Amino acid sequence: MNTQLLERLAHAEAAAHTRYGRTGAAARFGPLVAVHAGPDLPVNTAWHDGTRRPTPEELAAFEAFSVQHAQSATVHLLSAFTTLLPLLRDRGYELDYVLHAYIHDLANLPAQPLTQTREEGADAWAALAAQGFGPGAEAIMSVVAHAPGTRRFVADVDGTPAATAAFSLTSAVAAFHGTATLPPFRGRGVQSALLAHRLHRAAQAGATLASVFVTPGTGSERNVERAGFRLAGMRLTLSRRE
Rank of each mutant, 00 (worst) to 15 (best):
A163M: 11
T181W: 06
E120V: 05
F62A: 12
H100T: 11
L99V: 03
Q191F: 01
T170Y: 04
Q191M: 09
Q191G: 02
P183V: 05
Q116N: 09
A124C: 02
L84P: 08
Y97M: 06
I140T: 05
L59E: 02
Q68N: 09
A139V: 11
P135G: 02
A127E: 15
Q71C: 07
N108T: 12
P183E: 00
E63Q: 15
T150W: 00
G187C: 09
L95W: 09
A64N: 07
F133C: 03
L87I: 01
V144T: 03
P113H: 09
Q116I: 09
V157I: 15
G189S: 06
T74K: 04
T150V: 10
L128C: 06
G178W: 03
Q71T: 11
P148E: 06
F167H: 08
V190Y: 05
A61D: 14
V173A: 04
E57Y: 01
V157A: 11
F176A: 02
A137Y: 01
L99Q: 00
A162F: 08
S171M: 04
A64R: 04
V98P: 05
Y102I: 03
A64L: 02
A122K: 05
A124R: 10
D123G: 01
V98A: 00
L78N: 05
A172L: 02
A70R: 15
A162T: 10
L114E: 13
R118N: 09
H100V: 04
H69I: 09
G121R: 07
L182P: 09
S142P: 00
T115E: 07
F153L: 14
A129P: 12
R186C: 15
T179Q: 11
A175R: 03
A129T: 08
L88Y: 15
W125N: 02
F65N: 05
V98E: 06
R188N: 03
D156W: 11
M141F: 08
L182I: 08
G134E: 08
F185D: 12
R151Q: 15
A145D: 11
A101V: 13
H76N: 09
T170S: 07
E57G: 12
T82C: 14
R188S: 01
F62I: 08
P161F: 14
R152P: 00
D156L: 15
S142C: 10
I140S: 00
T181F: 09
Q71L: 11
D156Q: 14
H177N: 08
A111H: 10
A64V: 02
A73R: 08
V173R: 04
S66W: 07
